[in-house]
Amino acid sequence: MSKSAAPSDTMAERSAGSTWKQRVLLEADRRAVAAGLMAAVFLGVVAASAATPTPFRSVMRSTDVIHTLFQGLTTALITGVTLVVSINSLVLSQELGAVDDQRERLDGALEFRESVADTIDEPVSPADPGSFIAALVGACADRATAFRDALDQSTTDVDDADDADESDAGDESDAGDESDAGDADADDLFEDVDDFVTELTTHADRVRADLTDAQFGTYAVIGAALNFNYSWKVFQARRIGTVHADAIPDAARDAHADLLDALEQFGLAREHFKTLYFQWELIALSRAMLYAAVPALIVTISMLLFFNTAVVEGSILGVDVLVLAVAAATTVAVTPFLLLVSFLLRIATMARRTLAIGPFVLRRANRTTVPDGDE
């Protein structure tokens, strides 16, 4: 199995872009990202004013640019916030429905929890999302180890039986050739399985450590779940089962099937909590935009009704106070839009990085194929 093709342990590192960029897009607090965008807008307006050969006050005397700017911002602010909140309400409308629909959802959730309880070998699956995901990741690691142990035990039993047969029947050349071929297949199988299980258990321990005390609603829970690249692990497990189909003893096949089942259960859980997290983020986005829209609307209306350029005099650090005042008011006015950008950057990045469900790897750097049985 090619180790060079194996993806990194975190979603940010698996991206083709720089790690710091992915961390800003995914892990940073959305309010901090919005604040950074606000600073960029403010500094951009000031820099544009400094780069313009005509002084801003001269432009103000010849045109009514302030009135035009903030009239457009007021209209865009009311329209944009209303539209975004309406779209979010439409997305969240699936939470509404008849009692039969709600019962079907409840029955599906309870059935899935019972299935996961069997997978993690507990009477009841955890209620907390972080603990739920950690338990499933632990089950994947435990079943991977059980598969390796079952394979090791079966190989040991076969070797003991072969030694006994050789001592009874004596040495024969044909039998020796078949035994050597069987030993080579078994060695290749165990090497592939050992590499796979070591990587999976190490990664699982890291994910469970990241989930310690993680609270749903923050990126910590869903981020740890997305870092566990189960798609690649399902592909590896199925590849082992296909390439070494003749070499896997019957006693280890059940353990292999149990491992695949645990990985598939994790995939379902990850997609479920990712959907819940998207809904959580959309709710947070709606609230943040509504909170920011009120002061933004006050600022834009005040600039239209009360702002007097003749009153604003002086300069700060060589920059006209009028420019600073207009830049600050403009920044406040576009804050709801900047909040929208900051939230959608994370949602869009997550959606793009997790488009596939199951053993599909969409990254070009990790493109691979299932080898035939002769490899």
Rank of each mutant, 00 (worst) to 15 (best):
S58T: 15
T74A: 14
A51V: 10
A51C: 03
A40W: 03
R103V: 13
T119E: 03
S89K: 07
D64A: 08
R30P: 00
S86E: 00
F42Q: 04
S49W: 02
G72S: 12
L69S: 14
E114F: 12
G44C: 02
G97E: 01
L77G: 06
A76S: 15
I87D: 02
A40T: 13
R14M: 01
A50F: 10
G72W: 15
A39I: 04
T52K: 10
S15F: 03
S89N: 08
T119D: 15
A6M: 15
E104P: 07
E95V: 02
T52M: 09
T19K: 15
D100R: 13
L43E: 01
A32G: 06
D9L: 08
F70N: 02
T74R: 08
D118W: 11
R57Y: 00
E13P: 10
V59W: 14
D107W: 15
A5E: 05
V33A: 11
P55Q: 02
V81G: 02
Q102D: 15
A34F: 12
D9H: 11
A40C: 11
Q22P: 01
M11D: 07
F42E: 09
F56V: 12
E114L: 07
Q22I: 00
S86N: 03
L90D: 09
T10F: 01
E111H: 13
A98W: 03
A34E: 13
R105H: 11
R113W: 02
G108D: 04
L77R: 01
G44T: 10
A51T: 07
Q102A: 14
T52A: 13
L43T: 01
V24I: 12
R57K: 08
E104R: 14
T68N: 15
E95K: 05
H67L: 13
A16W: 15
L110K: 08
H67V: 11
L26S: 03
L25C: 05
T82K: 03
V91K: 00
